[in-house]
Simulated scan of single mutants.
Amino acid sequence: MASFTLDNIRAAADAKYGSTDIEVDEKTTVHLLNPLRLPKEKREKLMNLQDEMDKEGSDQEQVISDAIRLVADHPKKAGILLDQIGGDLAVLAQLFETYGKGAQVGEASASAS
Rank of each mutant, 00 (worst) to 15 (best):
M1H: 10
A2K: 08
A2C: 08
A2L: 09
S3V: 13
F4G: 09
F4Q: 13
F4S: 10
F4I: 15
T5E: 08
T5L: 10
L6A: 12
L6Y: 13
D7F: 07
A11Y: 07
A11S: 14
Y17N: 05
G18A: 05
G18F: 07
S19I: 04
S19M: 06
S19H: 08
I22D: 04
I22R: 09
D25I: 04
E26Y: 05
H31M: 11
H31P: 00
H31C: 08
H31K: 14
N34M: 08
N34T: 11
P35L: 03
P39V: 06
P39S: 06
K40N: 06
K42R: 15
E44S: 14
E44Q: 13
L46A: 00
M47N: 10
N48R: 13
L49D: 01
L49T: 02
L49H: 07
M53W: 01
G57S: 07
S58E: 14
S58V: 09
D59C: 01
Q60C: 00
Q60R: 05
Q60H: 07
E61I: 12
E61S: 09
V63A: 01
V63I: 11
D66S: 15
A67H: 07
I68V: 14
L70A: 04
V71E: 06
V71H: 08
V71T: 06
D73K: 04
D73G: 04
H74A: 15
H74M: 09
P75G: 14
P75I: 15
K76W: 02
K76G: 05
K77R: 14
A78E: 01
G79H: 06
I80A: 03
I80F: 07
L81S: 00
L81C: 02
D83L: 06
Q84Y: 04
Q84W: 00
I85R: 06
I85C: 06
G86P: 01
G87T: 01
D88C: 03
L89S: 03
V91C: 03
L92W: 02
L92A: 02
A93I: 07
A93M: 10
F96V: 00
F96I: 03
F96G: 01
G100F: 00
G100H: 01
G102T: 02
Q104F: 08
Q104Y: 08
G106K: 10
G106S: 12
A110K: 15
A110C: 08
S111K: 14
A112H: 09
S113C: 10
S113T: 14
